[in-house]
Structures are given as structure tokens and as C-alpha cells.
Design a protein around this nucleic acid. Structure first.
Lengths: 216, 216
DNA sequence: GGATAATTTGACCGATTGGTAAACATTACA
DNA sequence: TGTAATGTTTACCAATCGGTCAAATTATCC
């Protein structure tokens, strides 16, 4: 008889590691496209190449699978913002933040869509994280931006909306990929659009945040 | 006996107008949150306050409901971009485009989420529209922006990515509303955030697009 | 008011949903 | 190699899914 699944987390087998990995990979495929409600266990099982009961042996419910997936993906997703450094040069920091976020949109579009789906549905599974850890992290980085403003290194602006606009512009290339490609046309649907986007966004944010009295 | 439904479009009753309106309103509620796959006819029927077979009397399938909803919402959704005027002053045009898109995010968030859901799922129901009419419209407006660049009224930049970034930053306040509110906190979750966003985005885009040799 | 068309509903259908039970197969380890 | 724990599968369940049907109800128009 199998031990109760609650105990599974105590000692993890090689098989457990592999299968759970395999399942979460398939779950990411499915959840990121159809959202939680629109996805079915059967779909995920098929993508994962195993039977539904086998899948449910590792994750007792659809909820548990979704939660495990979000938990695993969340930490890496916030890494670029965490790397935002108070000590660095504002212009370089903003540039590199945009670059990193765009790279993630290019290399991990499913993760981006997973969160986008969750947001559209009102964030039923991550609302506490948004109000807690995420808000704290953003508050912290907003404070950094405010010191840059106070020292005159960048223009006066609302740091929260600055962060929102970097999020939205970069994630757009993952979440709305199909629209971007349709509008750009077949010939510009290679990865070159990410380089073009990076160039444009750097120009936009660096120019838009240049302190009043500087340069020109 | 009721006439075949194909004939319904020939002469429309008062009741038909009202009920179809009522159904599409409920469908917008449901589809915009859960997407096509994640929404059920029963849900929509309940929100609309009528029985499922009654609902299916007006729209034969879930697909038909979704298609009718998209068709109805699409025209208005593209109106701000259509209003983008070649004759106007670039700065004023961009300002007013941002304002209008933000107003739509505030006043029609469900419509925004309906499209966002559709995009995340790969636009199965609107791909032709994206590649056809939408692309043509954007091409046209991109040409307008290029004339502004050529005449030195705004900085050199990629007009497509400029449009993408206005779309993404403004729609963010509808699609990611729950995240925006969570990060800003309870106290900043009134409609004031749209005014703050407008101020920031105007500053960002006007500053970011200022031609090299001008001002400051 | 009566005929006729339009609308609404309850009962129902087969397919799919999330999930379970138990038999069966495999692995790890003494 | 035996055996207990782990892993997998087949068969199944009740609930929900999209959708149909025929009967009942309501509106329209002469």
C-alpha cells in the first residue's frame, strides 16, 4: 500500500522528482494557454504522456498542481526586480531591468502568460502574495527610485507607475505575442523584434526619465 | 412553431433586441474573466437571469455567443487608434491617445480583458482580424508617425513598438487591475490611480519622444 | 377574441469533467 | 531473493458540460 501522500514530501524518490518535473512542465503548457478554469487534468495528462490517475498520484487535485506550478515559477519571475540595485547608476539599472524583463518575455513566455491568466481572473490563487511580498518588494524599489529623483539623477515621476509601465511593455511581448506577430507581419516575426523592442523601450524610458535640466 | 433561427436576423423583434443585449452583457461578464474555454453556458445563463435553453434560443452555440460578443465590442475598441490624426500636432495626438486608451481601461475593463484572454489563448477567434484589418490600421498609423519623425517633430523611433507600448501600458490598468490595486494598497485604489497613470505616461512618452535637438 | 408566430421552460442526452478504488506492476533495500 | 513500499493502470463514479426536444406559455396582429 502506498503511504499517504502527505508523507511524500518527507523523502522524495528519484522517480518523484522526475515525474513531478514532467507534470509541472505539461501543466505550464496547458495552464498558460487556457487558464485554470479552462484547463483540464486530461489535457495535462496527455501532454505529460501519462495516465490521469498517475498524474493524480503526484498531485491530488488540479488546485494542488496549479499551486505547485505557481510556487515554482514565482521566485524566478521576480528575480529581475529584486536585482534592481540602489547603488547602481539609474540609467544603467533601468536599461538592464528592461533587458532582463524582455529576455524573460522571450525565453519564458509561458510563465508570463500563466501569471497574466491568473491576473485576468482576479488572482484568486496569488492575491495574498500580491498584497504581501510583491507589494513590499515594489515599495522597496519605489523608495530606491525616489532617492534617484531626490538626488536629481532622473526626472520627478511616480515610481509605482514607472514600474508598472516597465512590466507592461515588456510582458506585452510574451502575453500578446500573437498580436505582435500578426501586426509586424511574417517577415518581422523572428527574434529580431525583441532587439527592436529593447532599443525602443530603452530610448523611451531613458529619454522620458531624463532630468529636466540635463543634456539635450 | 418558431421560425428557423437563420431567419431571425431578417426581422428583429423588440424582445430579441433586449434579450440579446442582456445575454451579451452577461457573456461579457463571464468570458472576460474565465476566457472562452473556462466559461460555461450555465454561468452566463445564471448571470443573464434566464434559463439555458432560452439563452440557446438566441445564440445556438457558445461559439456563436462569443463571436457575436467580439464583433460587437471590436469596433469601439479600435476607435481611439482610428482617431489618431495625421494632421494634428504629434504631442497633442499622443497625449490624447493615451488619455482615451486610459479612459477605456477605466470604463471598459471587461472589454479589455476579453481581448487579453483571447490573445493569451493564441487568438483562435480573431487571428484573421489581427492579420488583416488591425495590421492595415496599424500600418497606416505607423506611416503617420514616420512622417512626424521625418519632419523632425518627434524623435526617430520604431513606430510599431511605440504603438505597442501605448497599448500595453494603458491596457495594463484594466487587465492587471487586481495587481495594480494590490501593489498600490487600499488607500490608492480609488479612480485617482488613472489620473496618476495618465500624468506619468504622458511625461514618459512626450519626454521619451522629444526630438534630439529640441528644448531643455 | 382567435389564430399564429415568438418565446420560455423542464426534462433529458451523450460526452467530458475532477476525482476514486482497487488490482496490478515495479522498485528499493535488507 | 524476498518483501514491503512505491508507482501505474483499468474501471468506474457523480457532477457538470454543451446542446436538443417537445410541450407550455406569451406576444402579435387581424
Amino acid at each position: 500500500m502506498a503511504i499517504p501522500r502527505a508523507a511524500k514530501t518527507l523523502r522524495r524518490t528519484r522517480i518523484q522528482e522526475e515525474k513531478e518535473e514532467q507534470i509541472l512542465e505539461a501543466a505550464l503548457d496547458v495552464f498558460s494557454v487556457s487558464g485554470f478554469r479552462g484547463s483540464t487534468i486530461d489535457q495535462i495528462a496527455e501532454v505529460a504522456g501519462m495516465s490521469k490517475p498517475n498524474l493524480l498520484y503526484y498531485f491530488r487535485t488540479k488546485e494542488a498542481m496549479h499551486r505547485a506550478l505557481i510556487d515554482r515559477v514565482l521566485y524566478n519571475w521576480l528575480e529581475p526586480l529584486r536585482a534592481f540595485d540602489a547603488e547602481g547608476d539609474p540609467e544603467a539599472e533601468i536599461r538592464s531591468y528592461i533587458r532582463r524583463k524582455l529576455e524573460m518575455a522571450r525565453d519564458f513566455p509561458r510563465e508570463s502568460r500563466l501569471f497574466a491568466n491568473e491576473m485576468l481572473q482576479g488572482a484568486p490563487h496569488v492575491l495574498d502574495m500580491l498584497k504581501g511580498p510583491l507589494k513590499e518588494l515594489v515599495d522597496e524599489k519605489a523608495a530606491v527610485i525616489r532617492t534617484w529623483i531626490k538626488s536629481g539623477k532622473i526626472a520627478r515621476c511616480d515610481p509605482y507607475h514607472l514600474i508598472f509601465s516597465i512590466w507592461s511593455t515588456t510582458q506585452h511581448y510574451a502575453d500578446f505575442d500573437v498580436q505582435v506577430r500578426a501586426v509586424l507581419g511574417e517577415e518581422h516575426s523572428g527574434d529580431g523584434r525583441f532587439e527592436d523592442a529593447a532599443r525602443f523601450l530603452e530610448q523611451l524610458f531613458i529619454g522620458g526619465l531624463r532630468p529636466d535640466g540635463s543634456g539635450a
